[in-house]
Design a protein around this nucleic acid. Sequence first.
DNA 1: CCTATATAACTGACTGGTCAGTTATATAGG
DNA 2: CCTATATAACTGACCAGTCAGTTATATAGG
Lengths: 209, 209
Amino acid sequence: MQRARTDQAKDDRREVLLTAALHEFFERGFSAARMDDIAKRAGLSKGTLYLYFDSKEALFTSLIETFALPNVERIETAARAAGGARNAIRAVLALAPNLVRESVVPLIAKILIADAPAFPDIVTAYRKTVIERVLGVFADILKDAHEAGEIDVSDPDLTARLVVAPIMFSAMWRVVFEHDDEAKLDLVKLFALHEKMLLRALWFKEEAA
Amino acid sequence: MQRARTDQAKDDRREVLLTAALHEFFERGFSAARMDDIAKRAGLSKGTLYLYFDSKEALFTSLIETFALPNVERIETAARAAGGARNAIRAVLALAPNLVRESVVPLIAKILIADAPAFPDIVTAYRKTVIERVLGVFADILKDAHEAGEIDVSDPDLTARLVVAPIMFSAMWRVVFEHDDEAKLDLVKLFALHEKMLLRALWFKEEAA
DNA sequence: CCTATATAACTGACTGGTCAGTTATATAGG
DNA sequence: CCTATATAACTGACCAGTCAGTTATATAGG
């Protein structure tokens, strides 16, 4: 086997191992995933895996930390870049189909849901740094629009959750049901509809006109 | 240990074991849950557990089958009993807080999500008998209202998913985050808001008036 | 109503297999 | 030829499933 001697090469190897771990943990869950399989999937041996991570738990923790943030930033930028609440909602819901179908977000979510009771600290950290940050961005935008008299939002935090709920719903749908093709969702249509209904609900006076 | 001699007593024992299994599988996942712990939780020995279920897998299957249907029926009756789409939506969303907070539905959902890849057949069966049945009830109601000219619903199947999404969202929230009290959701307010926004989105012409 | 006998519910020690983590050995690459 | 990296053989803890033995309960027979 070729050796990773430079720092760059080692970082690459770490990443390959983390990606392998992502898929094994996703498919099997923390407990049933085998360190041997993760190493093999990365084209390495178990011994080598232990050169890069101290334990199965350490690997799990690194995994969540590594994959959690990048996609949050994508959402956050899209939301903040668009001017105004209406455009922010549009921008994020336009991103949603790709996020649900192509990104690792649904995989990470599934892994966290599955192993939450075993890793309460990781879950709490994830909620604070990822979930509540995303919800907070939405809530802020809604609040601003409310204060500007543009829309009527009694509770921005709860409204933000209602905006996000279909993303979570379809992420779980993908992860649980889409192993059989019969159950595929049309995500583009789903989020277009969600957008339409949200705009009607929030700007209902103008929309009805 | 007292013995279960009558059929009734045996059924009771089965149920106690299933309830113990529900909680262990929920907390640990299929793989990490121990048959010994399930038995102990039910106040019995592992040997006895094997008198009632052939294997860990058989126990798992029975568990899903036993707990899946009753709550579907609750939703279905509530939806069908209420006359008209508006009342059906109201009736079901009024049920939602209790369903999310008190029923086993979120536990079963979590277990299924966690172990879906290991039990594709169970998952497919669950989708057909539970999920699509519930979604179908909503879709039918929406379609009827649409055909009666009451509301404008281009795609009842997708709309039904948007109605249900916040239930799934808050079920996962409970199951993943509510181990710490800091993260409690106000479900009554959440679903009241969801109802308000749905009514605006669907009957937006009248609501705006 | 008592007691002896039969039965089926129950138990927990044991077995075989699995897998996280360790270590002795091999070798790529400078 | 030296050493950091990689490997695969190894160890021991753990656990699903089994089964020989135990005991609660039913009931036959006095």
